[in-house]
């Protein structure tokens, strides 16, 4: 059973009277537990593909199923619920909530997206803080953390609800090399321990080397030799 399956997916944006094709005839399959990198130049459609896989947007044409759900059949509210139940996100700029502490940021999806009990939340947050090695920084606010620490917290937040899939849009773009490797290492470790599928976009060729599967995208199309 595949986790993500795209068949003839197209995404077109209407810019005034001109239709711009961001993705064309995307066909792909991603198995559960994969560690996948999407690479390609700026404007190639990486983020658009991630948005579609992440159920933030719907294809203009074709069929895209995530966890056996055809996302084009879901409305705005159902997409939000689906994301909250099954998908975690890591952003290039970390996007932590600045007024919340590290622990509260990790706890956020457990309270605001899902309704976990207080005891379960505390246990889960403690587990994740240990996993990312930041148990001693639980009460710090994002502005007291380094970039690498922030991204580790973001990874922990993405994993909080035990999603099947975590999507990361250029998660290492704002990090130095060493830190970037550490963050990718953390993601891989989480994949190994939890079996979560990670799909991330990147520019960095060295980081690409860490991926087990690479989807190279150019002009909105996945290059045939990279597609699997």
């Amino acid at each position: 059973m595949s986790l993500i399956k795209a068949k003839g997916v197209q995404k077109t944006y209407q810019m005034g009277e001109v239709a711009v094709a961001a993705l064309r005839d995307i066909n792909l399959t991603i198995q559960p537990g994969s560690f996948v990198a999407i690479v390609g130049p700026s404007g190639s459609g990486k983020s658009t593909l991630l948005n579609l896989i992440g159920c933030l947007d719907k294809p203009t044409q074709g069929q895209l199923s995530v966890l056996d759900t055809d996302i084009s059949t879901l409305n705005r509210h159902q997409l939000a619920t689906f994301r909250g139940q099954h998908i975690g996100f890591v952003f290039q700029d970390f996007n932590l909530i600045p007024v919340l502490t590290v622990a509260e940021n990790i706890e956020y999806p457990l309270v605001m997206v899902q309704d976990w009990s207080v005891a379960d939340r505390q246990t889960r947050v403690a587990e994740l803080l240990d996993a990312i090695g930041m148990a001693d920084q639980a009460h710090k606010r994002p502005d007291q953390l380094s970039g690498g620490q922030k991204q580790r917290v973001a990874v922990a937040r993405a994993l909080a609800t035990r999603p099947k899939l975590v999507l990361a849009d250029e998660p290492t773009a704002n990090l130095d090399h060493d830190t970037a490797y550490k963050v990718i290492g953390l993601m891989k470790k989480m994949r190994d321990e939890l079996g979560t599928t990670f799909v991330f976009s990147t520019h960095d060729p060295k980081i690409v080397g860490e991926a087990e599967k690479v989807l190279e995208i150019e002009d909105g199309k996945i290059k045939p030799e990279a597609a699997q």
Binding site: T81, F82, R83, F89, N95, I97, P109, M112
Partner: peptide, 11 residues
Amino acid sequence: EIGTMAALGTP
């Protein structure tokens, strides 16, 4: 921030 909250699935 609102975009992040919405992306994470906040109803």
